[in-house]
Amino acid sequence: MNVQDRRRLLGPANASPIVFSDVKEKKSKKIQAKPDDEISKMFINTGLVKNCDGSAYIEVGNTIIQVSIYGPRPIRGSFIDKAILSTECRFLPYLSQPNDSISRLTSSTSLITNYNGKLNLSNIEQKISSYIESCFLSCIYLENYPKSSIDIFIKILSVDTNLLNLVNDVVHCCSLAMVDAQIESKDLITSGNLRYLKSNNHIIMDPKCKDKDKDITNEVVEEGKLDLVVSFMNSRNDEIVGFWCEGNDTLEDDVLEKLIERCNDMSKEIRKNINFYLIESLE
């Protein structure tokens, strides 16, 4: 038995992982039907999980996200004048996380045999958690909830997209859960996600394609590609509450301005949909 963790049944310690040979490329390819200037359809639902204060479920393509919010709930200890916000994002342990190869390059993790033995948050999970936390810190009226804590738990049940596109969906899911939990906020947060290809000055809205690990790690580096997520409070003068940009090229001021504008357009479009859903669910 595994001696490192006696609280979980992790099986024999001398087991080695199952390593699969590469899936043949021609078969694993899926056809992308979505035009570049269109936003993917999404399925949203709130209040599915009953033992929390607010929950939301979102499905975009094959990506499935579930968010539960616990709070505001009282905390022990000395008095604090505003609520503590904490966020935890977790993938199902056996899912391969986007950009996983980069995070593994920097850590000394070797091949995983039993996925149940993964206890700490991975770099990707931490990054998503901190992005969501920083977005919602500036949005929630924390001072209205003294001596309490608000905990956001994000569970990624399935992922079939790139990292920033996933973050985009997570933001929407958290916003919906926040409404379901009836936590006082300045506004609802929505975001826009773009991919900018510098060579032909082309913008792909809501890019769903998966990043191939090879592109990021070593050999083939695509020319000028930038991914961007910008989160807004659209009913409060389009205030920006979160900004995440990744890519392998420089970003000029005028291009940045244009990209933020396009993100804002996308954000507004999604906001309309979410508003519609919320009004419908009230009736």
């Binding site: 992982p17 390593v19 040979s21 590469d22 391969s96 996983d100 190869s101 980069i102 593994r104 390059l105 993790t109 070797s110 091949l111 995983i112 690990d213 090879k214 790690t217």
Partner: peptide, 8 residues
């Protein structure tokens, strides 16, 4: 095998 997904 080149297994970038697992350990880079």
């Amino acid at each position: 095998i080149n297994d970038n997904r697992k350990n880079g």
